[in-house]
Design a protein around this nucleic acid. Structure first.
Lengths: 147, 147
DNA sequence: CGCAGTTACTTGTTCGACCAACTAACTCCC
DNA sequence: GGGAGTTAGTTGGTCGAACAAGTAACTGCG
């Protein structure tokens, strides 16, 4: 078999996203949006630059995700008082109303993913993924500093 | 921390794809396309339905990937002689010319990903990913049969 | 034979994600 | 103060990926 881990990563990622989409669908969210909402719920109103760094996505990706969430009414943007270029993103009431369901879906997704693995296996998997993430990040960024 | 493995899967997937994109870029391929090419190289001309099943992607995704690869000159389509609805997808000479470089890139990606992990750790990771894939697949498909 | 149902592929639409190029606003330093 | 350089966010384009809905061709059964 040629390079099975590459293939496994790709397949697991796609399936994981598909399952996430199924779970999030009924609350009107798409995969990726829940991460932004969770970040805002947990850490309050934040600039897009902070979100983009926390979620580790491109600024342009973030812009469009925020636009869609704003359009859907889950998020609001206010001009930053101290920096005229920046926006602060904040959850609306409608956004907050999703919180419990999203967290439940997130837990369920984790359970589905790890079904049948022992605690030790989960720990090993998690630590292996952390190292893989470090490896990939180092290569992608060209340095180990920002990982 | 809330549900760390979910997050890890998502981050690793994105980084893995980003690194793949960097490696494939210079040969004019995008992530996902290399999987199709490898499938065709390894198993010869195939119908799109076979490809879509082998790569486990939606038929519509496959259609467009084939269209782009065809447009790029890496792949050719011929009407299937025994079934007027189907197409057989085949690598062109230009496609075949990429083979060595793609396989090298694929190996490098695997090496980058697994850098610093022992053989035993890789084996454990791979087996854990296989089980996770089974779990997710079962949920996504609603049955264990097709996994 | 001919119609019903299935299968193979396509198209439209939406979304995440990236890169590249751009604007507007801030900062720093002469 | 004012220009050079940086930072924040946006827009345009492209691609993978999915779902939904559609067309054309095959299959099976009465």
């Amino acid at each position: 078999m040629t390079s099975p881990v590459n293939t496994q990563v790709i397949r697991v990622a796609r399936l994981h996203r598909t399952v996430a989409a199924q779970l999030l669908r009924e609350m009107g969210l798409h995969p990726g949006q829940e991460l932004l909402m969770m970040q805002v719920w947990d850490h309050g109103p934040q600039r897009q630059s902070a979100l983009s760094e926390a979620l580790d996505v491109d600024a342009s990706t973030l812009t469009r995700t925020v636009q869609r969430l704003e359009h859907a009414g889950f998020v609001r943007r206010n001009r930053c008082s101290t920096d005229g270029r920046a926006w602060e993103v904040e959850s609306t009431k409608a956004g907050l109303a999703l919180r419990e369901r999203v967290l439940a879906a997130w837990d369920e997704l984790e359970k589905i993913t790890l079904n049948g693995l022992s605690e030790a296996e989960v720990a090993a998997l998690s630590s292996a993924l952390a190292r893989v993430e470090g490896n990939l990040c180092e290569f992608a960024r060209g340095s180990v500093e920002t990982c």
